[in-house]
Nucleic acid binder design. Sequence first.
DNA 1: GTGCGGGGCGCG
DNA 2: AAAGCGCGCCCCGCAC
Length: 622
Amino acid sequence: MIDVPIDFETYWDKNYQLSKMTTAEYVLDPRFEIIGVALRTPDGVDRWVSGDIEHVRGELLRLVPDWSAVRVVAHNARFEAAILEWRLQIKPGAYMCTMVGSRPHILPYTRSVSLEAIARHLGVGTKGDYVHKVQGKHRADFTPAELDDYGNYSKNDEKITARISTYLLGILPTDEQEYLDLTIKKFARPRLRLDRAALVARQTQIETSKAALAKLVESRYKATLKDIRSRPKFAAILAQFGVQAPLKPNKKGTGMTFAFAKDDLAFKELLAHEKPEVRELVAAKNAMSSTLEESRVKRLIALHDIKDGWLPIPVVYYGCHPGRLSGDDEINMQNLPRVEIKNGVKKGHLRYAVVAPEGYSIIAADFSNIEARIVATLAGEIALREGFRSGADIYSSFATQIYHRPINKKDDPLERFVGKTCILGLGYGMGWRKFQLKMRQEGIEMSDATAQAIVSLYRATYPGIPILWRALEEMARTFLLKKDAMYPSPLAGLIFAHQRIILPNGMPLVYPGLRHTGGGYKFDSRFAGVEVMNSIWGGTWLENISQALARIIAVQAELRLARRALPAAHQVHDELIWVVPTAIVERVKTAIALSMCEAVDFLPELPIAVEIKHGPTYGDAK
DNA sequence: GTGCGGGGCGCG
DNA sequence: AAAGCGCGCCCCGCAC
């Protein structure tokens, strides 16, 4: 595979530009026009090709005879991939993106992955600003000399990209390079489709119910849905019925704010208020609080219409601190509402609109409670670990200890739920106050003493877990705070070094600017200035590490299967999604199960279990 | 009009 | 503090 760095320059103006629309919308827009493209051809020459789309395509095919043997290198490769594949019908063998490839090691220190910021950080050149001079300029508007200048600017960007790539490829393990490529292809080569009729039907349902709500609110309360949405206006409406709006401390702890969230207990209580008007208003507020489905259905219909029904999935490699993917391009395909019935309301309609093409089925495979299993294994809690391995009902077992009587899934769903929350939540150090609150929000009342007792019972039952929190703090104090420190720990091959934990796949979990202050450990936030800090302690570290290890395990499985001709269409953290011919679904499910359950090299004792389902739609595969 | 912070909600 | 954590997008209100 030979690397070909490439940089497209395309028409843009005030309203038509990438920063104001999604990649798919921009590239497939009628206004789309290639001004030119800079690339380094396999003979090592940097070139600039300019002309109409047929000319560009012809030249790219002439200069690079075998694109299947090429890895395209670009800064924001999702953009270059969309142009190459959707506009020029050119399919390279692989992609390398310097923008997302910079996220694991460099972003923690630059807080920006712009070509300019990364180039400055690495000292590999300075980006020009010619692109800002060409707003609203079509190719035909350029004089030959201007086009030449633009070509030189573009070649400079391409060369900088090439240097950044050389650096990154030197530090990114080959598995990660291959995985990064798969994330670009999830977008460029969609395998899932959208069911337009299902989307429109759902949209109509939503519109109808909103219209009915608007009518009701207007006739009874002389208010609009906008008034309901506004916190101060809603408070004023409540006051008309003698209800003082519930308050809670704001997030910064600098004052009070209205407690109008669906899980705020004081707000929830109003759902049982003696006045039917109050109950109705609170229900209306709740209905107006989530617009996810409404806006998402719009976005999906638009996507359906610009890409012939295909669903390109924009995911960001290393979008999250511990390495997981994040969403992008105005759509987060990792938070579609689940298929379930909550408070008597059916959810998950959008998942039924994500479908397999004719003759194909969707397979969704989940790692079962992978993080809790990792925690048990890292902490050396052998009984817990082996309980998971044997398929025992862990949640019921712990609930049995809480309630001093045998609990089982069928007869004691509530008690088992308490046990489940403990096993999944208390491992990261949740305190009894938050535990009690969480339980209350689920409708389970619990005294202070009971909540304290349950949290203590958890820590006493699995003492290795609190010990692990302590050990992580000790290793942080000894190694993460010290320059040039390097401790290869016995924990899953984790190496503790200055401001970072090196994971068993060689990738870092970075804590930039980590320091110990009076209030504990803090590190610079990725999302704001240095003055904004994230706090961290043993429980947080265990959470970050477990999530990072779970991510590596999922990626290893995804790569194994991709190499066996089963590239995943989508991934949601611990869930992998494939689209396969319906005729071979059962065989493929077996192959997937075997591969996903393969022992993990850096944690051989980890018991793995998967849950695999399939159906014609994503909703059915749950 | 645009950008930004806060509160909120969805998923894992 | 023996403290669950990780994201992206939405809307509102407000500053400029």
